[in-house]
Amino acid sequence: MSPESGKGANQAGMVVAAVADVMALILGLWIVMYLLDANRANTLVQFVHEAADWLAGWSHDLFTFHKAWARVVAGYGLAAVVYLFVGHAIANRMHRH
């Protein structure tokens, strides 16, 4: 492998890791906003909530805890952990090749 192709794979891996980090950050931010009872009429709160809903669509209502806060933490938190784990695993694999 030439040094240029290794550099490109490294940069691509960094991008993949950064995207995974941003996705997890949005999900984590929504969890914090939910727990702190952020104003849902606020534009930023609405944006973060909609983005988090889209990102965690596959894990939304996966858990059936009685408390709403526990469902939010578990569902959105699981999505954040999966994105971090998968994103960084892919980035590391790209870095090695």
Score class of each variant (00 low, 15 high):
Ser2Asn: 14
Pro3Asn: 13
Ser5Ala: 15
Gly6Ala: 15
Asn10Trp: 14
Ala12Arg: 04
Gly13Ile: 00
Met14Ala: 11
Val15Gly: 04
Ala17Pro: 02
Val19His: 00
Val19Leu: 07
Ala20Asp: 01
Asp21Ile: 03
Asp21Ser: 04
Val22Trp: 00
Val22Ser: 02
Leu25Val: 05
Leu25Trp: 06
Ile26Thr: 08
Ile26His: 02
Ile26Ala: 07
Gly28Arg: 04
Gly28Thr: 03
Leu29Phe: 07
Leu29Val: 10
Leu29His: 01
Trp30Ile: 03
Trp30Phe: 12
Ile31Trp: 08
Ile31Arg: 03
Val32Gly: 06
Val32Trp: 02
Met33Ile: 05
Tyr34Gly: 02
Leu35Met: 06
Leu36Val: 10
Leu36Phe: 08
Asp37Tyr: 13
Ala38Cys: 00
Ala38Gln: 02
Asn39Arg: 03
Arg40Pro: 10
Ala41Ile: 06
Leu44Asp: 07
Leu44Asn: 07
Gln46Gly: 11
Phe47Arg: 10
His49Leu: 10
Glu50Thr: 14
Ala51Thr: 03
Ala51Ile: 03
Ala52Asn: 05
Asp53Leu: 14
Trp54Gly: 10
Leu55Phe: 09
Leu55Tyr: 05
Ala56His: 05
Gly57Thr: 08
Trp58His: 12
Ser59Asp: 10
His60Phe: 11
Asp61Arg: 13
Asp61Glu: 15
Asp61Gly: 13
Leu62Arg: 15
Leu62Tyr: 12
Phe63Cys: 10
Phe63Pro: 07
Phe63Trp: 13
Thr64Arg: 14
Phe65Ile: 03
Phe65Lys: 08
His66Gly: 15
His66Ala: 13
Lys67Cys: 09
Ala68Arg: 14
Trp69Asp: 13
Ala70Asp: 09
Val72Thr: 09
Val73Trp: 06
Val73Gly: 07
Val73Ile: 09
Ala74Pro: 08
Ala74Ile: 10
Ala74Leu: 08
Ala74Asn: 09
Tyr76Ala: 01
Gly77Arg: 03
Gly77Pro: 01
Ala79Leu: 08
Ala79Thr: 13
Ala79Gly: 08
Ala80Gln: 01
Val81Leu: 13
Val82Glu: 09
Val86Cys: 00
Val86Asn: 02
His88Ala: 07
His88Ser: 05
Ala89Trp: 07
Ile90Val: 13
Asn92Met: 09
Arg93Ile: 06
Met94Val: 05
His95Gln: 12
Arg96Asn: 04
His97Met: 11
